[in-house]
Amino acid sequence: KLPPGWEKRMFANGTVYYFNHITNASQFERPSG
C-alpha cells in the first residue's frame, strides 16, 4: 500500500510512475512509508 496521497499511474507508453494528489509531486520510484 502506498503512503497517503500517492497513487500509481501510467503514461501512454506504459511507463509506470507515482503521483501524489496532495502535493502534486510525481516520481518513478515507489514512495516508501
Rank of each mutant, 00 (worst) to 15 (best):
Y18S: 00
N20F: 03
T23E: 05
F28P: 07
Q27T: 11
Y17T: 02
G5T: 03
S32L: 13
N20S: 06
R9E: 03
F19L: 05
K8D: 05
H21D: 05
V16P: 08
T23L: 07
A25T: 14
S26R: 09
N24W: 07
K1T: 14
P31I: 01
Y17E: 05
P3G: 06
K1G: 14
P3N: 04
Q27N: 04
M10Q: 14
E29W: 08
Q27K: 04
W6A: 00
R30G: 04
F28V: 12
L2Q: 02
W6L: 00
P4R: 07
S26P: 03
W6N: 00
R9Q: 06
E7F: 04
G33F: 15
W6E: 01
A25F: 09
R9D: 03
F11W: 11
V16S: 08
A12G: 09
W6F: 01
R30K: 11
P3T: 04
M10N: 09
Q27V: 08
F28M: 12
A12F: 06
K8P: 06
G5E: 09
Q27G: 02
K1Y: 12
F19E: 02
P31G: 01
Q27M: 07
N20A: 01
L2S: 02
L2V: 04
S26A: 12
N24V: 04
Y17F: 08
T15H: 08
V16F: 11
N20Y: 04
S32H: 11
Y18R: 00
G14I: 03
G33E: 14
A25K: 13
F19Q: 02
E7Q: 07
P4F: 13
T15V: 13
G14Q: 05
G14T: 02
A25Y: 08
G14H: 03
E29I: 07
W6R: 00
F19I: 07
F28L: 13
N24A: 09
H21E: 09
F11G: 13
R30V: 12
Q27W: 05
Y18A: 00
G5Y: 08
T23G: 02
F19A: 02
K1E: 15
F11K: 11
P31W: 01
V16M: 06
Q27S: 09
K1W: 13
T23A: 05
L2F: 05
N20T: 01
G33H: 13
R9F: 08
K8S: 08
K8L: 15
V16G: 03
I22F: 12
A12E: 13
F19Y: 14
F28I: 12
T15N: 07
P4H: 12
G33V: 13
P31K: 01
E29V: 08
K1V: 14
I22G: 06
E29Y: 07
R30N: 10
N24P: 01
G33A: 13
N24R: 08
E7I: 08
H21V: 15
T23S: 07
S26T: 15
A25D: 10
G33M: 14
E29T: 10
P4D: 11
A12N: 10
F11H: 14
A12H: 09
M10D: 06
K8G: 05
G14L: 04
S26E: 10
F19G: 01
N20D: 05
P31T: 00
N13P: 03
G5W: 06
E7G: 02
E29K: 06
H21L: 14
G33S: 13
I22D: 09
G5F: 09
F19W: 09
K8R: 11
I22H: 10
G5M: 05
E29S: 07
K8T: 10
A12C: 08
H21F: 14
N13L: 02
R9A: 05
G5I: 03
H21K: 12
Q27E: 05
P31M: 00
E7N: 03
V16D: 04
A12K: 11
F28S: 10
T15R: 10
N24Y: 07
P31D: 02
G5A: 06
F11P: 05
G14Y: 02
F28G: 06
A12D: 12
V16H: 07
T23K: 04
G33R: 10
F11S: 15
W6T: 00
W6K: 00
S32M: 13
T15F: 09
S32K: 11
Q27I: 08
H21W: 13
F28W: 11
R9V: 10
Y18H: 00
T23F: 05
N13D: 15
H21I: 15
T23Q: 05
F11Q: 15
S26M: 15
Y18T: 00
N13Y: 02
R30A: 11
